[in-house]
Every structure is written in C-alpha cells, then in structure tokens.
Design a protein around this nucleic acid. Sequence first.
DNA 1: TGTACATCAGTGAACGCGCGTTCACTGATGTAC
DNA 2: TGTACATCAGTGAACGCGCGTTCACTGATGTAC
Lengths: 216, 216
Amino acid sequence: MSEPDARTPRERYRAQVREEAKTHAREQIATAGASALSLNAIAKQMGMSGPALYRYFANRDELISELIRDAYRSLADTFRARAGAGAGLGDLAHALRAWALADPQRYLLVYGTPVPGYRAPEDTTRIAAEIMAVLLDACTADAPPPGPPSPLETHLDGHRDWTAHHPAPPSALHRALTFWTRLHGVLSLELAGHFTGMGFDPAVLYTAEAEAVAGP
Amino acid sequence: MSEPDARTPRERYRAQVREEAKTHAREQIATAGASALSLNAIAKQMGMSGPALYRYFANRDELISELIRDAYRSLADTFRARAGAGAGLGDLAHALRAWALADPQRYLLVYGTPVPGYRAPEDTTRIAAEIMAVLLDACTADAPPPGPPSPLETHLDGHRDWTAHHPAPPSALHRALTFWTRLHGVLSLELAGHFTGMGFDPAVLYTAEAEAVAGP
DNA sequence: TGTACATCAGTGAACGCGCGTTCACTGATGTAC
DNA sequence: TGTACATCAGTGAACGCGCGTTCACTGATGTAC
C-alpha cells in the first residue's frame, strides 16, 4: 500500500512543520479572516519564535498562496473523485455545499473576495480550469437536444477562453456558468451569515437551486 | 426649494468634516479593503493629526458602522425610488447591478463577507428589511396564479420571519429569494474578479439571470 | 564505530513601521451680558 | 458694540501593541571518511 518514502528525515520533518503551520494558519483564518493572518502569531501558537517560521516560508504571501493552492486542489480533487464515480450535476452541487460547509474560510479563499493587495499565484487558474472541466463534462453529459440558442448561449459560444477548448455545446456552457453562479449566490450569502435570523433553512433553498440547474 | 438650515454653523462644520472623512474612508476601502481602514491614515489624508478625528468618531468601529449604514440606506433609497416609479423586477435587477458597479466596495459592505470581528449595527437589519419589502412588493405584483407549491415554497410559507409580515404568496417568497441569491451570485463573482480572463461579458450573463427570475 | 566537518533548525535582539487610543494643552469660535 | 467667559477643534507627545523581516549566533542533526 504505502510506498517507501524517498524523503530524508529532514525533508519529512520540514514537511511536517509546514503542515502544522498551515493548520494553525487555517484556524487563525477561520476566526479572524484571511487578511489577519500573522506569521508571528502562528509561530507563537506552535511554541516557537517568530523568525523561526522563515525557515519554512519565504514570507507571509507564500503561506497565503500555499493555503489558496491547497484549497483549490482540495475542491478539484473532490470534484474529480465524484465525477469519476459517475456523479451527475446534482451530486456535484451537494458535494460543493458539503465541501464549503466543512470549512467556510477555505471556500472563501477560493471564491470569496480576494485578500486585498494580494496577487493569486498563476497555477491556481490552472486548477480552476480543472474544476471547470469537470463541470463542463457533467453539463455536456446530460445536455438537452440542441434547440435555438439563447442570446447568452450565442455569446458564450463565441467567447470560450474559459473552457480550455472543451467541446461543450452552448447549452452546456450556459448551464455550467449558471451552476456556478447560482450555487455560489446561495452559499456565499449563507457563509457570510446573511440568512441568519431570516428563519428559513438555507439547505432547502440550496437544494431548490441545485435542482433548478441540474434537474431533480 | 431649500429649507432654512436649522443647524448652527458648528454643527454644519462638524457634518462637513465627518462627510469628508467618510469620503476618504471610502477611497481607502476601495483600494485596500474594509479591514484595512485606518483612522490615522484618513486624518493624514485630510491634513490633520490622527487624534483630531476622535472629535468626530468615537472610534474606528463607529466609522465603519456609519459607512455600512450609508451603504444600506443608499441601496434602499435606490430601490424605493425605482419601485415608486413603477419599476418591475427586471428594472430592479438592473438598478442593483448599476448600483453595485458604481461602487463595488459599497456593495461588498452590504452583501460581502463581514469585516472580521465586527458586529453590524442593529438598524442595518431594519434597512435590509426595507429592501426586502420593496422586492416582495415587486414579486407579489407579478405573481403567477397560484398552483401547487414546491417543497421550497411550502417551507418558506412556514418560515416567514424575514418578510416582516408581508402578505406575499409563497411563489413570491421564492422569487424574491431567488432574485437575491442569483443576482448576488453573478455580481459577487464579477466584483471579486473571478470572471476576468474568462472572455465572456458578465453583463450578458447577468441579464440572462435577471430575465430568468423576472421574465423578459 | 568513531571522529571531523557541514548543514540546518531555532533563538533573541533589533529595526522600522503603523495602528488605536488617551491626555494635557493651545488657540480659535461662539455666547451672554 | 465691546468685553468676559464657555465651548469646542485641533495639536503633539505618549503608551502599548503587534506586525514583517533581517541578522548574528548557538546547538543539534546528519554526512563523509
């Protein structure tokens, strides 16, 4: 099962400390938001001095980049795994919600307002495209027989930069975007707490939106 | 036209300085996000010393509260004005987008992720309810003839805390929430820059979503 | 198995910065007679 | 209209804080012979 670990003990140790630092970073983000991330505070939580962390991360931005990358990869893996297991659009919708609720700040790291003054690493766009590809696959799989395209579909058919040459029909492009924006609409408002005190159950609303876009 | 100003010159001056400070605050938020708001920096921009601002705001939180309140009120006023002019759901949708694009950070102040560690003033919920009321009016106005309620509509009909006793039929409740979440889904992703580089025009997607929820 | 050396983790001091906020004070503006 | 007093705007110094980051250094861990 487990392959022999080719890494030296020191490399293993480094990876372990990095991982521990990232765990503390996630906890910190969960309580105070991403813009409040502090290397010094993390070091203190780990019982070491501030500068020590600079052995493991070049600077604060590298830590944040790492967290964002991890978040993207986690969602991409979740999606790919579900799709590989034959999941349809509706399953993906509920996988997305489960993934978001499991760690709200992780979701916001990916789809929330970017940390001000921070430039996302390029490779995240690659992972974002991977997520999109899974979505486009699912949308293409149960695409309806082609009818006359809507204005939006015509527009999307002519602006496919984001599809990475995926051969999805216009209706699938429309559906993929709608899947994304509608579910994000419910999720982000829920995670930001804008439904609290309103009385209804966000899950019911989410399910309705998921079915509206994916079919029952 | 203009009524005599009952305020003393000092009161007028105070209001003017407060307003100027808020303007600088908005600019600061626009470039660095709400969590980076600094009273000292604002004072410096206004050419006065840091502590001077404490004559005008009890502390940082009061300034932020004021900005949030203003943002809510601005949206509520916009909505009420449109509705008073006989606007339908589709008009409200486009008014919302125009309002959001005119000042993205103002939109995020209202519907974005809350500033971490900050508790919104209570009266904003009152203004939020006012916005909802306009929406519910519009949704009730062109509600379809009642049919069998969907599971979501049944649920919403039984959980009306958020409607402030508005007598909207279940289908209108559903429509109002959908209006909100779908349009927010597109808007928030657009404002956060998640569509940049994707090639398509967010306005076209927004219009399609607006028509999906409001009818053409 | 033992020794000599290189590598690397972690420390503490330090730098410069900006923050929110308090305080005693000066000087200008308004009010009352 | 002029004077005496109260109110208020704004200043500069100060406090304590935490931040990111650099640097010279100690001590432990690994490597080579």
